[in-house]
Design a binder for these strands. Sequence first.
DNA 1: ACCTTAAATGAGTTTACCTCA
DNA 2: ATTGAGGTAAACTCATTTAAG
Length: 303
Amino acid sequence: MMMMMEKEDLALSLGLNTSTNYFPPSLSLVSPSSSPSWPMPSHRLLGPSGGSISNVGGAGETRPLLTMIGVNRAPSVAATAGKVSDVEEEEEEGGASSLNSAASSVGGKRAERHALAGDDHDAERACFRVVSDEEDGEGSRKKLRLSKDQSAVLEESFKKHSTLNPKQKLALAEQLNLRPRQVEVWFQNRRARTKLKQTEVDCEFLKKCCESLTEENRRLQKEVQELRALKLSPQLYMQMTPPTTLTMCPSCERVSNPATTSSPANPQPSVHRQYSNHDRQTAASWAPFPLEPLFLDSIPQRS
DNA sequence: ACCTTAAATGAGTTTACCTCA
DNA sequence: ATTGAGGTAAACTCATTTAAG
C-alpha cells in the first residue's frame, strides 16, 4: 500500500515530457550533455493544505513545514540564521557548476570554498554524531527510509533546481535534519531517476515513430507497384480513376503523393529535378491539391 | 522473490592554487 | 616582477553497483 503511494508520487513528480512536441527534448540536437532543459511540471507534492503539510505523525496538529521535520537527527546543529531564506531567495541558475563558480568567484575563492566545506563537514559531524547514536550496528551501512515529508521537501526543491550548490545543500540538510551528504545523494539518485524515465519515454516515442514510418513505407511501396502495373497497361490506365493518394504528373509522368510530398506549409524536395515553364504552368493543374503562389514560386525556373 | 531507493564507489571534469622556467 | 605551462588537490557530477527495507 505504502509502495503504491510512493510509486504514484514518483510517477507524478518525475515530470515526464509526454507533450506533443515532435521530438522529445532529450532527442533534440542541442547539447546532449547538458542537464535536462525541459520544463518540469509544477505538481504540488505537498499536502492538501498547499505549502505545508498537516497531521504529521498522526498528532493531529498543524505545523509549518519548516519546523516539523525532525526525523534523523535532533535539531542540535547550530542554525545559521537566515540561511534557508537566503537560499530560497537565490535565483536558480544554469547548473551546479555555474552556481559554484558564481559562489566562489568573489575574492578568496579557495578559502571560501574551504570555509563552505568546513561548514559542511561541521554539520556532517554534528549530524553523524546523532545518527551514529541511533545506529546499533557497527560498520554496517544503515539505510534509512526518508520520511514522506522529507521526500516532499526534496521534491519541491528538485523542481526548482535539479542540482544544488553547497549553500543550498547545507540549508536543505538543516531544514530536513539530514546530513548534507544524504541530500547530495538524494539529488544524485533523483537526477538518475529522471534521466532513466525520460530515456524510457524517448524510447517509446522512437518505437512509435519507427512503426508508423514502416507502415507508411509499406503503403507507399504498394502504391508504387500498383502504378507501375497500371503504366504497363495504358488502356487500363486511361479508364482508371486516379488513385486516391498518388497522382501522376502529365508532363513528366512522375508520381506525386499529396499526403507525403510538398505542401505550402511544409515544402519537401519535389520529384521534379528540372522544371520547364510548361511544368510550372501545368503543376498547378495536375497538383491534387490547391497550390499557393508561394509554392509555385518555389519551383525554380530552368535557365 | 522482487522492487524501490539510499548509499558506496570509481571515473571524469572543473577550478583554484602552487611551483618553476 | 610578470607570465604561461604543468602539476596537484579538492570538489563536483554521472554511471554503475550494492544492499536495506
